[in-house]
Design a protein around this nucleic acid. Sequence first.
DNA 1: CGTCTATTTGAATGTACTCAAAAGCGGTGG
DNA 2: CCACCGCTTTTGAGTACATTCAAATAGACG
Lengths: 194, 194
Amino acid sequence: MYQLIIDNIQKHVSLTEYEKNLFISFLSTKHIKKREFFLQEGEINTHAVFVLSGCLRAYRVDENGFEHILQFAIEDWWIIDVMSFISQKKSYLTIDAIENSHLALLSREHQLELFNKCPKFERYFRIITENRMASLQCRILEHISLPAAERYANFVKDYPKFMLQLPQNQIAAYLGITPEFLSKIRHKTPNKKA
Amino acid sequence: MYQLIIDNIQKHVSLTEYEKNLFISFLSTKHIKKREFFLQEGEINTHAVFVLSGCLRAYRVDENGFEHILQFAIEDWWIIDVMSFISQKKSYLTIDAIENSHLALLSREHQLELFNKCPKFERYFRIITENRMASLQCRILEHISLPAAERYANFVKDYPKFMLQLPQNQIAAYLGITPEFLSKIRHKTPNKKA
DNA sequence: CGTCTATTTGAATGTACTCAAAAGCGGTGG
DNA sequence: CCACCGCTTTTGAGTACATTCAAATAGACG
């Protein structure tokens, strides 16, 4: 069951059998149904989520009720409200399931204990956090330098897997545009030639 | 000379004298003048930069020659092109000095060696990378949910120090708007009452 | 003092949003 | 199997936000 997450870790650091078991002993598991909340605004994000199957999203709801999506997570991705997770304070994000999903959970407490017991795990999280930081920087650059149509084109190119399982209005909420405008972008670009 | 950076580290992990000296032995130092490049597009970002004094910026130049600023760094801040630094591949960002600056440098090679010799340093960088990831997420959320005038207001509120040393056109390039529009925003908001 | 760059201002244009309504699509129950 | 309901997507008209281009003004620096 945990092969996926162990493999993910071993892309970055190699583990002994003892370490694998140690790690797994710290995990718990959870099934969550479509539209069910994992984290609601104001709660504390006590556990980091690794998606074994399904799809989740992390988003903020503004004062007008509009959702703005920070991240999608499908199979083999981590998802957390970093701010709340690292400080263990109230979240201002919501995390819920877009599909029925199977999750592996690691509490912040267990994570820190793991870091103390075995620096390899701290290395693993250091590395994936570096990688995520790089991809967040790319996303910011796209936002401050490209119009919506090009950001959408890049999204299609970079995340073909997401395109398959996400409704259009969710993609719009991720790109920072209205669903109406995304619809117009899609129909105004029938020819994708350079 | 390195007191600032040692103090910065000790906000997150405590160091023995030996560890302090080990760390310092891996640092080098550099003076850089206003408008001088630290990193040009296409080069490899071999060294992480810690600003001892002055001010730097990391930005991307688009095909029309416009600059889009990803990050400013003043005294007590780190600045790198993460993507290039962690992969040691060609950068697509430029880093240069906004003011005459004094820098402490740590090569990726030395950094990784440090991680192996002393996990405390890996912890320090894990922590500051987590923090940066959280702040990048905030910035993305602001971009996808707020109009320029509010993003500017937040910038003024969150980074008063930057306001003191940065010209307006640089702030516009950071906010993702034109300098002309920022000027209009500033003059259309004479009253800052709630 | 003159030069270079940064900021301001205005008019015209383009990008994206709001609101409203229609069309499409999927699931559910009769 | 079909009819209905709710939700997503499309379409259009009107509006607001932000850019472009050009020119005037203000500041910084040698």
